[in-house]
């Protein structure tokens, strides 16, 4: 086959998986920006979202699109409740305590999901209306699933952008993340904003889970993809939403190309190699604001 086509094929599937990293990374960054908590349970929120979708669509027989939308809502509610039960009581604790609490939540979620009958530790297939379909673009043959992932990500990122820059509550979320004191003085209920951001972040994670399901199935350990999304967020400058998206895309594409051209095994560490290389040149990440102290 034409090497150029092979290359392009890898780039497209890299962008597609990169979109999923980007969505999980977006979830990390949203919560971090608003609450200064690094939520290590982000990957598990994605896993829970995928299980909700699987339950509604495949076990419950709800049609695909409404089933997925319901799953997103349910995961959002789950995120809000998690924040309420777990993180709100910890407000004021040292950052380290809170971060460890999110690690505990991630372990707990995996354990609980493994015990639920019908979910368990088996892999499940989320039925998918686009399964097996391909779209030819010139000589390129692209799977419809990949295109779907890319299209949904573009729409979601656009919608988030409009929400945060135009909607009254979206701007208030930004204000809260920039200056909690002044936000409170302006009449913005900070606790409600934290709940909202957990809800949005969980829904974005659930969407990532649904988009990932055709490639990786629904499984209790699918949340480990967070280990790839985390470097994506750091690469983008942790705290920058566009940075999270670009970081995710870069890691997805580099991984795919490494799988194609580099020796066996390089693909698995490619994300971290890219991260280290970028951080050596730009310690604040691609989109981060430099905070380096002059010594």
């Amino acid at each position: 086959m034409d090497p150029l086509i092979v290359f392009l094929q890898a780039v497209v599937s890299g962008i597609s998986i990169g979109c999923i990293y980007a969505l999980v990374a977006l979830g990390f960054v949203l919560i971090y920006k608003a609450t200064e908590v690094v939520n290590f349970a982000q990957g598990e929120l994605m896993m829970v979202g995928a299980f909700f979708a699987y339950t509604l669509v495949d076990l419950g027989g709800v049609p695909f699109v409404p089933g997925v939308l319901l799953a997103l809502l349910a995961t959002a509610a789950f995120g809000v409740i998690l924040n309420h039960l777990l993180l709100r009581p910890l407000i004021g604790s040292p950052a380290f305590t809170i971060v460890l609490a999110t690690v505990a939540v991630s372990t707990l979620l995996r354990a609980v999901v493994a015990m639920i009958p019908g979910w368990g530790v088996e892999t499940h297939r989320l039925s998918n209306p686009l399964a097996g379909q391909v779209v030819p673009i010139g000589k390129l043959v692209v799977s419809a699933e990949h295109l779907m992932v890319i299209a949904v990500t573009v729409v979601l990122v656009g919608a988030l952008y409009l929400f945060f820059s135009l909607a009254r509550v979206g701007v208030a979320l930004q204000a809260t993340s920039q200056n909690q004191l002044a936000a409170g003085y302006s009449g913005i209920d900070i606790r409600r904003m934290f709940g909202l951001i957990w809800g949005i972040s969980a829904a974005v994670a659930a969407l990532a889970g649904v988009l990932l399901a055709p490639a990786a199935f629904v499984h209790v350990n699918m949340g480990y993809i967070g280990l790839k999304a985390f470097p994506a967020a750091v690469l983008g400058g942790f705290g920058s939403l566009p940075g999270a998206v670009v970081g995710g895309l870069i890691i997805g594409v580099v991984e795919e190309l490494a799988g194609l051209y580099a020796p066996e095994g390089v693909k698995n560490v490619a994300a971290y190699v890219v991260l280290l290389a970028v951080l050596m040149v730009r310690p604040q990440g691609l989109f981060g604001i430099s905070k380096r102290v002059r010594v």
Partner: peptide, 10 residues
């Protein structure tokens, strides 16, 4: 507030 505390990136 003291020190103005504007929303810097808005």
């Amino acid at each position: 507030p003291e020190g103005r505390e504007v929303f810097r990136h808005l």
